[in-house]
Design a binder for these strands. Sequence first.
DNA 1: CTCTTGAAATGACAAATGTCATTTTTCACT
DNA 2: AGTGAAAAATGACATTTGTCATTTCAAGAG
Lengths: 206, 206
Amino acid sequence: MNLIIIDDDNLVSLSLKTILEANEDIQVLEIGRNGLEAVALYDKHQPDVLLMDIRMDTMTGLDAGRQILAKYPAAKILFLTTFSDDEYIIQALHMGAKGYILKQDFESLLPALHAVMNGQSVFGSEIVTKLPTLIAHANQFDYLAKGISEKELDIIELIAKGFSNKEISEKLFLGEGTVRNYLSTILEKLELRDRTQLAVFYYQNR
Amino acid sequence: MNLIIIDDDNLVSLSLKTILEANEDIQVLEIGRNGLEAVALYDKHQPDVLLMDIRMDTMTGLDAGRQILAKYPAAKILFLTTFSDDEYIIQALHMGAKGYILKQDFESLLPALHAVMNGQSVFGSEIVTKLPTLIAHANQFDYLAKGISEKELDIIELIAKGFSNKEISEKLFLGEGTVRNYLSTILEKLELRDRTQLAVFYYQNR
DNA sequence: CTCTTGAAATGACAAATGTCATTTTTCACT
DNA sequence: AGTGAAAAATGACATTTGTCATTTCAAGAG
C-alpha cells in the first residue's frame, strides 16, 4: 500500500512513517508539509491513500483535499486531527474524505488504513457520537452578514421558538410595539413577509 | 479476536465464518440466527466484536443491539446489511453501533473488523455520503398517528413553506375560510397556538 | 327517496400581526 | 450643559389570523 503523509510538524510525519513502514506492505512514498505540497505530491504519485493533517499553515487540509478530489474523484483521503476539530468534521465528510481519526491513536491507524484501502470509511468513535449534533449546527446562516443586529437575532430566535410578540416583549423587557417594529425591519432585511416565513427561513438555514 | 456472528440465513453465517477463520487471529465462537440468540450469546461469550445482520425475523438487530449495549456499554457491534437499509442507519448510529457495512463486501470485512477492534467506527462509503440527508429525514414525526388526515397534512406542508391561507386555498382549490378551518383543527390536534408554532413544530420534528 | 355522514363553505367576530409616521428616551461625546 | 444618533416606544391603521356556529353539498346506506 502506497502512502503520502502530510503534516506541518515534521516530527509527526517522520514518526508516522517509521511506525507504518514497520509494516512490510506499507510504503511511504513521500512526506509533505502543507496543502500545496499535498496537491503536488498527489499529482506526482497518486498513492493509494493520502494521510493528511487537517489544520496547516499554508493551505488547509480541506482545501487541498477538495482540489485533489476535483481531479481524482476516487482519491482516498484520511484526515488526521490533533483533537476533535469539530468545525472541520462536517466539511471533511461533505467533501468526500474517507475518514477522520486522532493522531495520537497509533494502533488504530493501521487497521483504519486497511479499511480505507478497501473502500470503507473510518471515524474515531468519539466523532461518530457527535455527528448528529454537528450536522445540525453546520450550514448556519450568517445573519450578521445580512446586517442583522444582536437584538434582532434574539428576536429571530424567539420567533423561531413560536413565541408571540407579546411574549417576546416580556422576555426582552421591551414594549410590544417595539418588538413589532424590530420584526418589521427583520422581515425587510431578509425579504420575507411574515413571522411564519421567518421561522421557516430560520430552520431551513441551519 | 473473538467473534459472534448473527444472521437468519445460515448460509451467510457459515460462509462468513469460513472466510474469517481463514485468518488465524480470528475465532468465531458461535453463530446465532436472530436477535434473541444474539443477546444470549453475547451474555455467554462477551466477544470482542459482534457481527450482526440488521433485519431478522424474531428480533431485529437494532433491538438486540440496544439490549446488549444497555448491559455492556463497551460492546462492539458491527452491523451487516444486504442493501443500504436507509431507515436503520441512523438508528444504528444513534444506538452506538461501531459500524455498518454491506455483506457482499467480503474483502472489506477483515480490515473493518480490525478497525472496530481498535476503537474506530467503520461505514461503507456509500453510506457516509448519504448520512447528512439521512439524518435530516430521520426523526420524522408521525402525523397520521395523531389523527391528522391527508388533506391536513398537505396544509401543514404548505404552512411550513410559509404560504398564507389565501395562497394555500388557491393551491388546493379550497375556500380561504376552509383552509382556516383546517388549520384550526390541526392546531387543536397538535396542541399548538398559531401557524408559526406549527411551522416550528414541523421543522423540529424531522 | 330519505337519512346520515363528512367535506367544504360562509359569515361574523376578536385577537394578533405588520407597516408607518412620529415621539420619547438614552447615552456617548465634546 | 448641549448635541446628535441610536434605541425604544406610541398610536393609528389595514390585513391576516384563528375560532365558532351554522349552512350547503355530495355520496353512500338503508
